[in-house]
Design a protein around this nucleic acid. Structure first.
Length: 678
DNA sequence: CTTAGGG
DNA sequence: CCCTAAG
């Protein structure tokens, strides 16, 4: 009734044509596949480097971890061997001695420039600590899909061996991977000038590969050109207490959306999630030539009300809408899958590692090796300047935990490298926090000063360890109060471990999305596609004071940080990460109602296009669901309604439209769809 | 990919 | 919101 009336008044009987839709088959295109290849991975570089190093230092004393001082900051000991067919993989992992050949290699960030070109070989100076890792290749005839070669990378250190991770799958291999160099260095100094002495960087220009291997992909980590930096800063503070130190750990990517998408997208889809090109704020899209489109000339002229306030011609675009969101979600999905297949995990769910005390010669002094990648603190480097009460220490390296990788025997060396690289990236990017250990005991009191902890003397420094551990804050979304910004997943957010401390987001997207329509409609989308400056290391003093352990959440943090830790803690956030709830605003409801009045209840995609095109976080399913609830809401008494009250007027329209379209649905897609009454 | 519905 | 069967 009400609807009828509207029809009479609205646009003089302007009718929405009964738009025929192209047959699904016509809308569906074959899935193209593409292989984008040719990019060098860091590991390829490592490999080549390894070769040279092998030659150079083969004769030199067999490098031992304990002799790490002679090693580069980042290095792995690569061992290859043919595994006995029946020999359990685990054993292999533990059986370091059975290696037939080994290659030591190491890199520091200085060795390789961003383009992956080796600039200089690491010197065996006393500044570096070697991390040993072994790679064991074996064949496993019991593998389901034929023979598999297993490459196990694990630390040669005993403590490492309790952790095992694995990348497996029938067709493992990294579709797209990144290359990069990894080097870490953390230094805390008493200088009055904040000093960044080390950084862990990862440059991952992604390179896609075998299309069939997408599951071995680690979307989260595959930000092209990502940067991971670990650094500790210190502010000039008179009384030199650690609590005042500014510790920044930055793990993030600086990608723009394009790069990001390029990296995370499984390569069996050519689609590139690039923001639709725009002109004058409008995305440009080729109009399909289907009848569907041709049948809507009028509508094209028609300007529709959008919840976002934008008045724009409709039916100007189509599939691009969900791309961004989809890509994000796909990523999540893929990663879930990945995890489900036990891709790369550490057995204890942590970034297993060993905590090495700075005492160069006591390997047994390892503390809580079970909890994370640990850092080596170089004792002699840690000097204590008593007069200034400053504690100076240098973390030479963080150990890469054990990784177990399984790939097909037919896998290329390159893909193996990428697999490994991805595994490493996964660990490094997966949200880490730093733990401080004193004599093997984890220090959880972030407020106490070093002096109070009695770790200001050189002796005590010897027992000071750092370790990387899975971030307890991986459920980033929950940190974003209220309505998390739609951008947060591409934003680097620094948070502290202390509950209640401020969370700083580098974008104002949330604000934007809730701004009045006009601001929102065009600009938001635009904004979103800008390379978000993700390296925000703004931390309030308060934050600093409250925590020393900062967790850097990379762009993907909105999504579960998958792949590596499969511990209980992280698992939940990884697997279930629901989309953030975004209650519909009244304006959105109005837009929805209007659109449905026009289009009916069976064309949610069109509704989406018409009224929520710029609301990337609203999928047509969302709209459908919302309509469902609206109908329900309209039927119940106002007292039973919850949430932001929807104007009765709108609910009336909902009811009217609902009944109207229900009727017409019965009549085979009503011939003259209703019209909105603006 | 879209729809339609149940969870 | 999520998940899925269907188309």
């Amino acid at each position: 009734m009400g609807l009828k009336k509207r029809l009479d008044f609205g646009f003089n009987g302007f009718q929405v044509p009964n738009i025929p839709r192209a047959p699904r088959s016509a809308r569906r295109g074959p899935h193209r596949k593409s292989v984008k290849d040719g990019q060098i991975s860091a590991f390829e570089l490592l490999a080549s480097l390894a070769g040279k190093l092998l030659q150079e230092s083969e004769s030199s004393a067999s490098s031992n971890a304990s002799e790490g001082n002679l090693q580069p900051a980042f290095g792995i000991d690569v061992k290859l061997e043919r595994q006995d067919e029946h020999k359990p993989l685990k054993e292999e992992c533990l059986d370091q001695g059975s290696s037939e050949e080994s290659v030591s290699l190491g890199l520091t960030s200085q060795n390789i420039n961003r383009k992956g070109i080796i600039k200089e070989f690491p010197h065996a100076d006393s500044d570096t600590v070697l991390e040993r890792t072994s790679v064991i290749t074996s064949s496993d005839s019991s593998a389901k899909a034929g023979r598999h070669a297993k490459s196990v990378i694990c630390s040669s250190r005993p403590t490492f061996q309790k952790y095992s991770g694995k990348v497996e799958g029938d067709s493992p291999g990294i579709v797209e991977s990144c290359y990069g160099n990894v080097a870490t260095g953390i230094e805390v100094q008493g200088d009055s000038k904040p000093l960044e002495t080390g950084s862990l960087k990862m440059a991952n220009p992604c390179s896609s590969k075998d299309p069939t291997e997408l599951h071995a992909n680690y979307p989260a980590m595959l930000n092209g050109d990502s940067n991971v930096k670990l650094s500790l800063f210190r502010d000039p503070i008179p009384n030199a207490s650690f609590s005042r130190h500014r510790n920044d750990i930055e793990l993030g990517s600086r990608d723009d959306d394009e790069k990001f998408s390029r990296c995370i997208k499984p390569s069996n889809r050519v689609k590139v999630f690039r923001p639709p090109p725009r002109v004058g704020g409008q995305r440009i899209r080729k109009l399909p030539s289907s009848k569907y489109w041709k049948a809507t000339p009028k509508l094209r002229e028609f300007e529709h009300y959008r919840y976002d306030g934008g008045v724009k011609p409709i039916y100007h675009k189509r599939k691009t809408f969900y791309n961004r969101e989809r890509s994000q979600r796909d990523t999540l999905y893929k990663r879930r899958k990945l995890v489900d297949r036990s891709s790369v995990v550490t057995s204890d769910g942590g970034f297993s590692g060993e905590s090495v005390s700075n005492s160069p010669d006591n390997g047994d002094k390892t503390g809580p090796a079970a909890n994370g990648v640990s850092a080596s603190v170089i004792g002699h480097q840690a000097s204590f300047r008593s007069e200034e009460s400053h504690v100076k220490l240098k973390i030479k390296s963080f150990r890469v935990p054990e990784l177990v990788i399984e790939v097909s025997e037919t896998e290329t060396v390159g893909s193996l490298k990428r697999t490994v690289m991805d595994a490493v990236n996964a660990i490094l990017r997966d949200g880490l926090s730093v733990g401080v250990l004193v004599q093997g005991k984890k220090m959880t009191d972030d407020y106490r000063t070093l002096m109070q902890m009695g770790i200001s003397s050189k002796d005590s420094l010897d027992s000071l360890d750092f370790m990387l551990e899975p971030s307890p804050m991986q459920a980033l979304p929950s940190l974003c109060s209220g309505d998390p910004p739609s951008l947060s997943y591409e934003t680097s957010v620094l948070v502290t471990r202390s509950p209640g401390t401020p969370v700083l987001d580098s974008t104002m997207s949330d604000v934007l999305s809730d701004l009045p329509p006009i601001t929102n409609s065009g600009s938001l989308a635009e904004t979103k596609h800008e390379p978000v400056s993700s390296h925000i290391d703004i931390l309030t003093d308060k934050t600093m004071l409250e925590s020393q352990a900062l967790v850097a959440i990379p762009e993907m943090s909105m999504e579960p940080l998958a792949v590596v830790p499969v511990s209980q803690k992280t698992k939940r956030s990884e697997l279930a990460q629901r989309r953030t709830r975004r209650p519909f605003s009244v304006s959105e409801v109005e837009a929805l109602v209007t659109a449905v009045e026009e289009l009916g209840t069976g064309r949610w995609r069109d509704v989406k296009l018409r009224a929520f095109e710029n609301a990337d976080h609203r999928t047509y399913v969302d709209l459908k669901d919302k309509w469902k609830t609206l109908v329900h809401t309209a039927k119940i008494s106002p007292q039973q309604r919850r949430g932001e009250p929807v104007p009765q007027e709108l609910l009336d329209r909902v009811l009217a439209a609902h009944s109207y379209w229900c009727q017409h649905q019965a009549k085979q897609h009503g011939k003259h769809p209703a019209l909105p009454a603006f």
